[in-house]
Structures are given as C-alpha cells and as structure tokens.
C-alpha cells in the first residue's frame, strides 16, 4: 500500500523523470508548470543521467526523528551529467572519502518509513564511483 502523497512523486523518485523546457532547454527536477528561467509552460519529459558529481555535502550527526537511526549519514547536492541538480543521501560509501567534485552514481534505495504505519518509501541515493 502507498499513500497518494507518495504515489505522486514516484516518476521522479524511481525514474528520475524531469521536465526539459522546450523554450530554453533548462532541465527542471522535479518538473514544474512554469520554467523559472524563461517562464515558458511547454516541457518534454526526460530521464536524468544517473551519474554526476558532488557540488557540496555535509555529514548529518543530528537529524529529525525520522532519520535518527541512520546517523551519521551524508547528504550532498549532486549535479548530474546533463546539468540538472538534486539533493541526495550518500549510500554505501566511506564518509571520510566524500569530497566536493567526486563522481557519483544515483541508485535506487529505501529512503524512509512514512507515518506511524511505517510505509516503506523509496527513491534515489548517490554512491561514490
């Protein structure tokens, strides 16, 4: 069972679907109804490259209750090879190896459990390559 709130985001979280502006070419992730760069409302759906690099990162030592069983964990801003950007947790990697500029691959992982009923929620995480 999944919730509507979760189901809406599946194209982005499972398949990295983004909206490429037909006017200026900006890749918007997640998709939007208005392109923030050129105000166009025409888009085509594209899938992001699942490889990119770390623009900046941190290691979270104190989290909200939702993630407290996972601390310490790293979160980074990733620029994909097609120039889109996103926020992702870093998985399966030595925290001491993480640096700005390092290359990563986006992988499918469980992210969190939703609500008191504990629905499993999935999405993308980044792994150092």
């Amino acid at each position: 069972m999944i919730s509507p709130k979760y189901a809406r985001e599946i194209p982005q979280r499972y398949r990295l679907e983004a909206a490429k502006c037909k006017s200026c070419g900006k890749i918007n992730f997640p998709p939007r109804l208005v392109c923030p760069r050129c105000k166009s409302r025409e888009f085509e759906t594209v899938r992001l490259s699942n490889e990119g690099k770390i623009l900046t990162y941190t290691i979270i030592r104190v989290s909200s209750d939702t993630f407290s069983h996972q601390t310490p964990y790293a979160v980074a801003i990733i620029e994909t090879n097609d120039g889109a950007k996103l926020m992702a947790m870093i998985a399966d990697s030595d925290l001491n190896e993480i640096e700005i500029g390092k290359k990563v691959k986006l992988v499918f992982r469980k992210i969190q459990d939703e609500g008191v009923w504990g629905l499993h929620c999935y999405g993308y995480k980044a792994v150092l390559i």
């Binding site: 979270i60 104190v62 996972q70 969190q112 999405g123």
Partner: peptide
C-alpha cells in the same frame, strides 16, 4: 519532497 525527504536538516 526534494530536500527534507532525503534526510537534510537546517544545520545540514
């Protein structure tokens, strides 16, 4: 949906 969902905090 796209920052906090992935574990980020304000100090982060």
């Amino acid at each position: 949906e796209y920052e906090v969902y992935n574990g980020v905090t304000f100090p982060g």
